[in-house]
């Protein structure tokens, strides 16, 4: 029997529940239903963690589809449902550009100008997606997949 999404089927996959919270992760669409959420790991280094409550590692759950304009006004902290996951405007699959906006609005604790400049990270901040330079992965346009790891490292601190 193929694994089904708990969100729709009403039951949970215990092993995934522990890792990713109450709302289970879809197994890469193999239940035939589009995933509503994506889980990922975010890490900060090179002094950047100081802007994020001095915490290096964060586990996040983001909506699978997000507004085209990267508006992060409905935080995914409230349990999502297929209903409230639908934004009024146009949507796109969640990408790193959205992640950056989300981090800035929901996780960053101080001095936003040291993290973002314009629509992206401040020049001098390196980004790695699954241990690969994001410049090889399409930068902000990289579509985040379940279980991805995104690392932000500042090069601007200290010598």
């Amino acid at each position: 029997m193929p694994q089904r999404c708990c969100q729709y089927a009403g039951w949970q996959l215990p092993s995934l529940t522990e890792d990713y919270g109450t709302f289970c992760r879809l197994r890469r669409n193999d239940c035939g239903v589009t995933a509503v959420h994506i889980s990922l790991k975010v890490e900060f280094g090179g002094g950047l963690e100081l802007l994020f409550d001095n915490q290096r590692s964060h586990k996040l759950t983001l909506p699978a589809r997000v507004p085209l304009d990267n508006s992060t006004s409905s935080p995914p902290s409230s349990p999502p449902s297929p209903q409230n996951n639908e934004y009024e405007g146009e949507t796109k699959p969640v990408d790193v550009a959205y992640l950056i906006h989300w981090l800035r609005h929901h996780l960053l604790k101080e001095r936003a100008e040291l993290f973002m400049e314009g629509d992206t990270v401040r020049p001098g901040i390196l980004v790695l997606i699954n241990d690969t330079d994001w410049e090889l992965e399409g930068e902000g346009e990289y579509v985040i997949k379940n279980g991805d790891e995104v690392v932000f490292i500042s090069t601007l601190h200290g010598g």
Binding site: G46, L50, L128, I153, S154, H157, G158
Partner: peptide, 16 residues
């Protein structure tokens, strides 16, 4: 330099 430190797992101090 920062990438080298990252991939070599060199720990350094990075407070301003």
């Amino acid at each position: 330099i920062v990438m080298y430190a990252y991939f070599k797992h060199l720990t350094y101090f990075s407070t301003e």
